[in-house]
Design a protein around this nucleic acid. Structure first.
Length: 645
DNA sequence: GGACTCTCTGTTTTT
DNA sequence: CAGAGAGTCC
């Protein structure tokens, strides 16, 4: 059954029915781009019921991938077998699990999701280089060098190019830094660890070196789709070029160059130009907007035309919603930011509970949001939350569980042993010495997990039910690698912990929250790969590629940075702090009106206002945190500030 | 020790 | 621009 196309507009239908060859869909905000993507995938599947090939759909975030999977499943049941909808990082991890041996990587590699771990590795790389550098006079620190290494990995710079790249970017001592970069990459492979950038860079290097692997991918995935292409960095683009079969060029890309707001992560308007050139893309635009009131579309258009260097043929957004009598836009002017925050909080508090949940407060920086959350929660008693990223579990139970599993996967990992000991001390008050266990482990084939197990059972202070759990369940993990069973047992043990030591169990709410997040993540991974396919190392890798943030509280007002709000929509948007040095940021102001930084700030503003479904409230103050401010130039560009100054 | 000047560095975040 | 930290002077 082919999906029903009559609900789509003409341009959308054209995109969905696109047959073969490269197509670039330039899709504005609220233009139904995800719909186009899912319909097209569904259509290809249903037109080829007797075929076995799969369609590869790549996204930037897990959230977008999950949404695509869900939406395709409703269009075509069992689409799972015919699609592989995943993130760039997840795809790279799959690839490296399967073919990593070509570059000396084992499939049970771990993912360095924390900067502290990356710094440790980088410090080791620096030491390694220092040993050979006779006149090594300057001491580099991992902490200071890490951002540069990240930037280089995001571009998949090779050790052949590194010195050139560094010197053409005016970086001092390109030879030494280049050697450190190469040593860092070497160490990742040697220690079987990859950071996010390394995942991309090594996947690219593998594809570059092994045409046979590329061919296999071309056979399995004759169609490749990419969502939010404007966010891809150079590494990801280079990977993409290898994924597409050059003889068919079946690449379907959805992008919006007016929503590039991640330049500092490696995204760039250049990428879209390269894409158009490299693949000779046919371009189709989706300027229809189904989300915003026409007045909002008007100011969004006014704003974005101020950006020089957009695709010259880019069409203006066209509103499909019908405007009401009353303007949905409010501009609010205050003397101080305190007053601004108070007014916004009050305005939200005066709405019904139901309406509040459909509001959002947006700002350029977290600092402004932290302030407004305080006012909302403390003064207006309106529940509100700040979107937060979370790479690791915080509470002792989940930290212990995660560390034990990681130790089971890498039995000689000192850092994980340290974490196991530390978390167990918090849980049970028993303080084991890491060094002792490590030396004891030499009698256990260097297996830190078994050594810890033996050592902990020798302790007197252990509660009986804890002892029972450890005696029974650690071997389930360490000998039989039955991690599912082990996790179930561990949760049972956690539930009983507060009986004996309620005073150390103050963070029970946190545990419930984290347990929920854990179960959600594990469930998602199991569904995506199929239960039998999920090995311990795959589970751990996928966990490290996902945020551990709890699901937001019900009826709480979300307070997001503009970046965090990308891809979302809300009935009522409060965009606060519309002043120079905030939006646009001080840095963009310093760089000047035609700088790429300023263009990006303008896109930030564009993204913010195009989140609106019903009403937009923009506010600014003459004074923020005691400093005099002028209204944002963007207000003037949008024609919202006619009379002032 | 306190008040002052200076210099440096920094925002946004997903994986 | 703005905040933190270092250095200087009394």
């Amino acid at each position: 059954m082919t999906p029903e196309l009559s609900s789509l507009n003409e341009n959308q239908q054209m995109a969905v029915q696109w047959q073969e060859g490269p197509l670039l869909v330039l899709a504005g905000p609220g233009s139904g781009k995800t719909r186009v993507l899912t319909y097209r995938i569904a259509r290809i599947i249903s037109k080829t019921p007797d075929k076995y090939f799969r369609i590869l759909g790549l996204t930037f975030t897990n959230k977008a991938a999950a949404e695509m999977r869900e939406r395709i499943e409703t269009l075509v049941p069992k689409a799972n077998e015919r699609t592989h909808l995943t993130t760039f990082h997840s795809f790279a991890a799959d690839l490296l699990r399967q073919h990593g041996h070509h570059i000396n990587l084992r499939p049970d590699f771990t993912i360095l999701s924390q900067d502290t771990d990356r710094q440790t590795l980088l410090d080791e790389a620096i030491d390694e280089v220092n040993k050979f550098e006779t006149e090594a006079k300057i001491k580099y620190s991992g902490e200071k060098l890490l951002p540069l290494i990240t930037r280089l990995l995001d571009r998949s710079v090779t050790s052949d190019d590194i010195t050139n790249v560094l010197s053409s970017n005016d970086i001092s001592e390109p030879e030494v830094i280049g050697a450190i970069y190469t040593a860092y990459r070497g160490r990742m492979i040697k220690e079987n660890k990859l950071d996010f950038g390394g995942l991309m860079a090594e996947a690219y290097s593998l594809l570059e070196q092994k045409p046979a692997v590329r061919k296999q991918i071309h056979r399995i995935y004759p169609y490749v789709c990419v969502d939010e292409f404007q966010d891809t960095n150079l590494s990801q683009y280079r990977i993409l070029r290898h994924l597409v079969n050059p003889s068919t060029g079946n690449l379907f890309v959805v992008a919006d160059d007016d929503q590039i707001i991640y330049q500092w992560t490696g995204a760039s308007p250049k990428r879209l130009h390269a894409l158009r050139d490299d693949f000779k893309m046919t371009v189709l635009q989706l300027p229809e907007n189904y989300r915003c009131p026409p007045q909002v579309i008007d100011i969004a258009n006014e704003l974005i035309v101020h950006n020089i260097g957009r695709s010259e043929d880019r069409e203006r957004l066209r509103a499909h919603k019908v405007g009401g009598e009353q303007s949905p836009i409010r501009i609010m002017d205050f003397d101080t930011f305190e007053q601004e925050a108070k007014w916004v909080a009050k305005d939200i508090a005066e709405r019904s509970i139901d309406e509040r949940g459909k509001c959002v407060v947006l700002a350029r920086t977290r600092r402004l949001l932290e302030h407004i959350i305080r006012v909302l929660v403390d003064e207006e008693q309106v529940p509100a939350y700040l979107a937060m990223r979370k790479n690791e579990f915080i509470g002792a139970p989940m930290r212990w569980l995660h560390a034990v599993l990681r130790l089971a996967n890498a039995r000689q990992n000192r850092e994980q042993l340290r974490r196991v000991c530390k978390a167990f001390f918090t849980l049970e008050g028993i303080d084991l010495n890491v060094k002792d266990i490590m030396s004891f482990a030499s009698t256990e084939d260097g297996d830190y997990l078994r050594a810890w197990h033996k050592e902990i059972l020798l302790q007197d202070g252990l509660e009986q039910h804890s002892r029972d759990f450890l005696v029974k369940s650690i071997p389930v993990l360490s000998d039989r690698l039955d991690f599912e069973r082990f996790i179930r047992d561990a949760f049972e043990w956690f539930e009983r912990l507060p009986e004996n030591s309620p005073e150390t169990w103050e963070h029970y709410t946190e545990f419930t929250e984290e347990k929920e997040a854990w179960e959600g993540l594990v469930n998602e991974i199991m569904c995506q790969y199929g239960r039998e396919q999920v090995t311990l190392h795959l589970l751990l890798q996928e966990l490290d590629l996902r945020s551990k943030a709890p699901k937001p509280p019900n009826n709480a007002v979300p307070c997001f940075t503009i970046h965090a709000s990308k891809g979302m929509e809300f009935n009522h948007v409060y965009l606060i702090g519309m002043v120079e040095d905030q939006l646009p940021s001080w840095n963009a102001v310093k760089k000047g009106d035609s700088s790429r930084e300023m263009q990006e700030e303008r896109r930030n503003c564009f993204v913010a206002i195009t989140r609106v479904q019903e009403s937009l409230t923009m506010s600014y103050s003459r004074e923020v945190f005691g400093w005099p401010k002028t209204p944002s130039r963007f207000l003037k560009e949008m024609g919202c500030l006619v009379l002032q100054e």
